[in-house]
Amino acid sequence: MLEAIILEKTKNSPEIILDKENNTFKIAGRSIVEDPGEFYSPIYKWLEEYVKNPLKSTDFIIDLEYFNSSSARQIMEIIMLLEKISDTGQKAKISWMYEEGDEMSKERGDEIKLVSKLDFEIKEYPAEDF
């Protein structure tokens, strides 16, 4: 079994959960890392292994309130890796989450959906009360 990657979010990087055993796959928070290639490379390595032998159904949650343009490229890379899951006959989908009223995150999701070949769902969740 692939060992899970769990990273807590920081002020510049998102929370990452890649946990095959518990069927949880998630990127959440903010991704404005200056060197996204370095930050995301262990994630790619993990996913490259995972897509060879995935679970029956993979629901990958992306809940990013903000990402810089170089991170956009990395997120797309993740999605393109997940597209390979269909070669194994298993299913994969993206759940793009955004907070109610956050048009920019929704628009970014709409756009990535356009270029993605995966089942892609865009879901709104209620804004947090302060």
């Binding site: 903000y66 810089n68 920019m104 995150s105």
Partner: peptide
């Protein structure tokens, strides 16, 4: 929120 995010985006 939209303007706010834009400013944030440009700044980054």
């Amino acid at each position: 929120l939209k303007v706010h995010k834009k400013i944030f985006h440009f700044l980054v």
